[in-house]
Design a protein around this nucleic acid. Structure first.
Lengths: 229, 229
DNA sequence: TAAAAAAGATGATTTAAATCAGTTTATATT
DNA sequence: AATATAAACTGATTTAAATCATCTTTTTTA
């Protein structure tokens, strides 16, 4: 189906797009930027509200989601050193397309959107890099779109577990700062289904779980389940 | 839920991004571009294949989709005067993220991807415009993502019917060159469900259907059904 | 540290929508 | 025009997964 789970998150970039700015541009950004601390459960930006800032997450882990009643749709989760809110910069729309909220204590740098747009229009190398980032985000969104619409529960859960391992924590063992409820929202299923699946994977010796700690015992099997759907 | 259906297609742009090119750049594009005719059912580009071209659809109507067995996932349908394949230009990936296939006879201009990238890196205004287009595409993809994952059959069908009316055909009455099977793929449901829903909307005097022609009798009701989900 | 609240867990029931099995109508092909 | 093939349609059945109703354990806070 698709062998490389990329449905939960973008690849963390090795280099920053801000390296491509001139000294003057860097200063301009610095002068028009504030760094803000957010606690778990707070709202960093709210879908539909006026987008006056570009958000760069310098520390933490956040979810990016569309508001829905009764259930939100998590578009992606984003770890530190990533930009969020980029798609809000296009002309003809000045509102956030989605809401962003941290899973854990996080730091965000808020950059004035007009300064950002101005630099985009004068620095082609920077714009080109932003295009790369946007495209990578798009590729990830498509992967996730496919996962949530075409895979069933087992495949979705396997996909997300592998994705967290490979793309965020970069280890087969990780502490997941998400409740079963959060995991349900992320995998697009009910909390009860999450609990049943985690238990099933545990009973089958595919993963080991104790508290918030998850250890993937059989990554090949998990990848297989993810790819079969 | 969301009042303005945008789940099937991007807004057709009024102005072309190519207007922002210098004469030299325009010539460069022209010299490295071919225009090709595609018949219904052919493949314009294939997911996973080497992306050496940017595709600009000058005539026709195509579907952009992820391959899946047994069922594809239609990401968007795109009418003439739009670019497709843009997300394939990012560094580190040189393959098409998706397949593209026409519903009707179509013409596509294939532009060399290296020429395109080169212009992006030297013309910031052009790059900025491309960012706008990418972001608009992203907004549309999110809308569709939400539609297909959070709305149930009635909402999805209503959403797509309104979206086709508002965004592609720009009329309450249109000839839809899609079979029930195509509609099923587009709405992410089974063919039988499409047939049942179309009949139900017809019986309820919300739409009128004869052959390929669809007339929306009660757009308010349809929008309501779409927004309730 | 006791009480309250939240999170985790489990089995039974319901439900939305797919699949299946078939018929009818339309379109293409010889 | 006759046949073949594909598309459209319909009702019955199955299924995946949500919801519901409870209960237990853990965490929070008064």
């Amino acid at each position: 189906m698709n062998a490389y789970p990329n449905s939960c998150v973008v690849r963390t970039p090795e280099d920053s797009c801000f390296d491509l700015l001139t000294d003057d541009e860097k200063k301009l950004v610095d002068d028009n930027m504030v760094e803000v601390h957010y606690k778990k459960g707070e709202i960093i930006c709210k879908q539909g509200s006026f987008a006056s800032k570009i958000i760069y997450l310098s520390e933490g882990l956040v979810k990016v989601y569309l508001e829905g009643s009764p259930k939100n749709l998590v578009l992606t989760i984003t770890p530190k050193n990533n930009m969020v809110g980029l798609p809000s910069i296009f002309e003809g729309n000045n509102t956030f397309l989605y809401s962003v909220s941290p899973y854990v204590d996080s730091w965000a740098r808020l950059i004035d959107i007009n300064v950002f747009k101005q630099i985009l229009k004068q620095n082609a190398a920077f714009a080109s890099k932003i295009i790369d980032i946007l495209n990578e985000n798009t590729a990830q969104a498509y992967g996730r779109f496919f996962c949530l619409t075409r895979k069933q529960l087992h495949g979705r859960m396997a996909d997300i577990l592998m994705c967290l391992s490979e793309r965020i924590f970069k280890s087969l063992e990780y502490d997941l700062p998400l409740s079963r409820n959060d995991l349900a929202e992320l995998t697009g299923m009910s909390t009860e289904s999450v609990i049943r699946l985690v238990k099933e994977f545990k009973d089958d010796r595919i993963i080991e779980v104790s508290g918030k700690s998850i250890r993937i015992l059989d990554p090949e099997r998990l990848r297989k389940i993810s790819s079969v759907g």
